[in-house]
Design a protein around this nucleic acid. Structure first.
Lengths: 249, 249
DNA sequence: ATTAATTATGCAATACTTTTCGAGAATTAT
DNA sequence: ATAATTCTCGAAAAGTATTGCATAATTAAT
């Protein structure tokens, strides 16, 4: 039995049972407790589980393939997510695009009141399903291998039938002059449809992606109602956006 | 034995079993462990597998961490998946329901020719995205929290527009007299639509779910063209199905 | 076709990793 | 406090990796 296999087994047990005993796993996998102890320690160091006296427990933070360390600028995105949540009200209909910032928002979504959320993003949808009070509606269509989102005609048609209260647009590049831009033509079409389908458009972006311009244009800066970054609203970096009167959170 | 042959053998083993041991392959292919070690290293450098101490593991395995119920059922499902693949031809349009058997099938899907696959299952879709040659189309709609599949009116409407060559129906309970049954009314509607949308219906089920009956009926046994279980086609357990002339694989 | 260059394989010695075990220290439960 | 369990550590054993080298097989060049 390979170390890798043990690690997988352990991760699965932790996921399913929320806790594991050193002894049980050692018996089950037919190795010494020492070995399992080292495995648990290793997985703990990776942040995948939490080692405790006599075994390990789930880290409850990690569901699915969601690995915080793998997400670039995770702390920033987490903060953006928390700010975004302050905009959400009970019973609202929300539209969420893809990207790791939205994925983080999906993870942080409030649990205590009902919401209806439309998304074309597979990872975001999976994350939303963790929240029992959220009705998640997947906007279907042809899936993009890399981005793991639905794109193309079907998706746009479906979006044309939706009218959401808020749309959270993740990823993308934002510049005061040039507006919101993307490097994938199909993603541009998708975002345009999402903007059309929402009363209020909220752009979520880490400050690093501000003042960057890509090939294709999604919309003018004026079409965006609210901008959320990890920076405080009065940060000089956001000066250009403050000047044109964009709401900044 | 040519190097190419060994590499192909290894890749296939990794794909089917998720892992390989240096020793096993060396014996099987009748070359030294050194050679296999070099092969594994080579394949790792190509990014095709992940080399670990003592062998290698699949690298896409970790991208989506799916739950293997228990090792035995998993082996059965894996075998069912392999049988199902023998039915698939280039360029076909395929419909796949949810469930762990279909998830396993999704994992094992052939990589070397193009396919178009429709599915309402989030985990199956994610798994399919691992295959560059497969065009995956998600049949959108309201998502079920537990089953992680799209259900409801939208989903059924979309399916009404599809005509697939084959439909792989996972999970569910099959009995010669009572036909295919389910315990969730909405899932019944979904499966009915999937059956209507396909020229050929293939039921995938572990033998343990045969002769079980649930509350709601999806279809008669006659509506199913092909049955795949982990058992050999001539197994006495499948006697009832053999008698009515169902194709069994 | 023969030679030279390149690549692939197996072997042996050595280095490295992983696992197990035992004894004592630390922790937890009663 | 006492007993029971779990943890840490070092050493030994088992297993795996690396290296250099000899030989065989393949490819390219003359």
């Amino acid at each position: 039995m390979l170390k890798e296999e043990r690690l997988n087994y352990i991760l699965n047990e932790v996921k399913v049972r929320n806790r594991v005993l050193l002894y049980d796993i050692a018996i089950k996998l037919n190795v010494s407790e020492d070995t399992i102890r080292r495995d648990l320690k290793f997985l703990d160091e990776q942040g995948k589980i939490k080692k405790v006296h006599g075994g390990a427990v789930s880290n409850s933070f990690h569901i699915y393939n969601y690995k915080e360390d793998d997400i670039y600028a995770h702390a920033d995105k987490s903060q953006i997510g928390r700010k975004a949540i302050s905009l959400i009200k009970e019973e609202q209909v929300i539209l969420m695009s893809g990207g790791t910032t939205n994925l983080e928002l999906a993870r942080l979504m409030p649990d205590h009141f009902p919401l209806t959320i439309f998304t074309p993003s597979l990872p975001v949808a999976l994350q939303l399903l963790e929240h029992p009070n959220i009705e998640t509606i997947f906007v279907g269509g042809r899936l993009s291998h890399e981005a793991q989102i639905a794109l193309g005609g079907d998706t746009l048609n479906t979006l044309a039938q939706v009218k959401a209260d808020v749309c959270f647009l993740g990823t993308g590049y934002l510049d005061v002059q040039e507006g919101l831009t993307e490097f994938d033509w199909e993603v541009v079409q998708l975002k345009k449809s999402m903007i059309r389908a929402s009363k209020r458009v909220v752009a979520l972006t880490i400050s690093e992606k501000l003042s960057s311009i890509q090939r294709f244009k999604v919309c003018d800066t004026e079409s965006i109602h609210t901008l959320i970054t990890e920076l405080p609203p009065d940060s000089p970096t956001l000066g250009g956006f403050q000047k044109i009167g964009l709401e900044i959170i």
